[in-house]
Simulated scan of single mutants.
Amino acid sequence: MTTSAQERRTRILDFLRGVSSIRVVELAAQLGIPAVTVRRDVAALADEGKLERTHGAVSLPVEGTDTVAGGGSQRLIGMLVPTVGKYFDEVVAGASAAATAAGARVILGIAPYGADSDRAQIERLVESDVDGLLLAPNWKPGPGLVGADWLAELPVPTVLVERRAEPDGPAAELDAVFSNHRHGALLALRRLSDLGHRSVLLAARRDTWTAHEVRAGYAEAVRYLALDELPVIDVPNTTDPGSAVDLGEVAAQIAGAVASGVRAVLVHNDQDAIQLPGLLRSHGLSVPHDLALLSYDDVYAALSDPPLTAVAPPKRAVGAGALELLLRRLHTGNTLPVHQIGLLPTLQIRASCRGSV
């Protein structure tokens, strides 16, 4: 016989009257109800102020205390990122600030590039009885972005952050908030085209979803703006274990292109771009006099000498938007259509670009 939601929730409250607190997974085992169902019931009861959740455990409210009701009340959100200290610092900061404003809390997991630990880290977050997940999985570009299908089987609502699944896979049905890096590449090339450059070189990595999108956006922008088609210079993938960074070789390839008449280059990302002006000087080239240099990410670009014009993805807005979308999903359930929201980068104009010579 099917048990109604009201009957299940009454059983949960009755059980909690006999214990001080209990983890959701243990509560589910005691009641013989699937954990995913208990999580939904617990979230609903918490929103009604009938129970409290702390660090993955649930209990009845202490008499005389207030429990805030609402879409973000007492929500615990798990967030997975591939790194901190660089690009994703701002994404995490945006999500954390939005969570605080909504009365929710973010707990962070890190699955480093190249470690193949996404699934293990996500399982740990789920075991912490999170209500939902914000995920930036370490998808490796290639023929399709592989490794996404199992995400569609997660037991809690999930929003992809700075990622978008392939349209023909199960994970394509997940909510997503991301920077439109293809538009960012178009911004960069349009700026250089407006300065008179018809040949714009791209030096880029291959190891991340952002790199994949920047490369695709560059190819689209070259066609759209009718620029010269040039081979892409591969920047070493420093996120791969054991890989060596040889930006000296990248600088040599750029110098060779300059000798052939190229006077502009877009570099992904700025951690690499800020090293190039010094390396190019050893080839007798100065930025921006001999070469216009534009970087992608705008994490360190302003600290370069000269300061670099840079594409700036809306990193904080992506984090905040993903958190807000997840809270809406938790509040409304399946009545909310799948949202896949691309936010447009901006271009920060600095001293590293000038017109073609």
Rank of each mutant, 00 (worst) to 15 (best):
A148I: 14
D149F: 13
D149E: 15
W150Q: 12
L151P: 15
L151M: 10
A152P: 07
E153D: 14
L154W: 07
L154T: 09
P155R: 10
P155M: 00
V156Q: 08
V156Y: 13
P157I: 09
T158I: 02
R163N: 00
R164Q: 03
R164L: 01
A165N: 12
E166G: 02
P167G: 01
G169D: 15
G169P: 11
P170T: 07
A172V: 13
E173K: 11
E173G: 12
D175G: 08
D175S: 11
F178Y: 04
S179N: 02
H181T: 01
R182T: 02
R182E: 03
R182I: 00
G184F: 08
G184R: 01
G184D: 05
L186H: 15
L186P: 08
L187M: 13
L189K: 02
L192T: 01
S193L: 08
S193D: 03
D194T: 12
D194A: 13
G196P: 03
G196L: 01
G196S: 05
H197S: 05
H197I: 05
H197W: 05
H197G: 02
S199F: 11
V200H: 08
V200K: 08
L201G: 04
L201A: 13
L201S: 03
A203L: 11
A203E: 07
A203P: 09
A203G: 10
A204T: 09
R205N: 12
W209R: 15
T210A: 14
T210D: 04
A211L: 06
A211C: 03
H212W: 06
V214L: 02
V214T: 06
R215W: 02
R215V: 13
R215S: 04
A216H: 03
Y218L: 00
A219Q: 08
A221E: 07
R223K: 10
Y224W: 08
L225M: 05
L225H: 07
L227I: 11
D228C: 06
D228L: 12
L230F: 07
L230E: 06
P231G: 10
P231C: 13
P231E: 09
V232T: 08
D234L: 09
V235Q: 06
N237D: 14
T238M: 15
D240T: 14
P241Y: 08
P241E: 04
S243R: 02
S243L: 02
S243V: 08
A244T: 12
A244R: 15
A244E: 15
A244S: 14
V245I: 11
D246N: 11
D246V: 04
L247W: 14
G248D: 15
G248I: 13
A251R: 06
A252N: 06
A252E: 15
A252L: 12
Q253R: 12
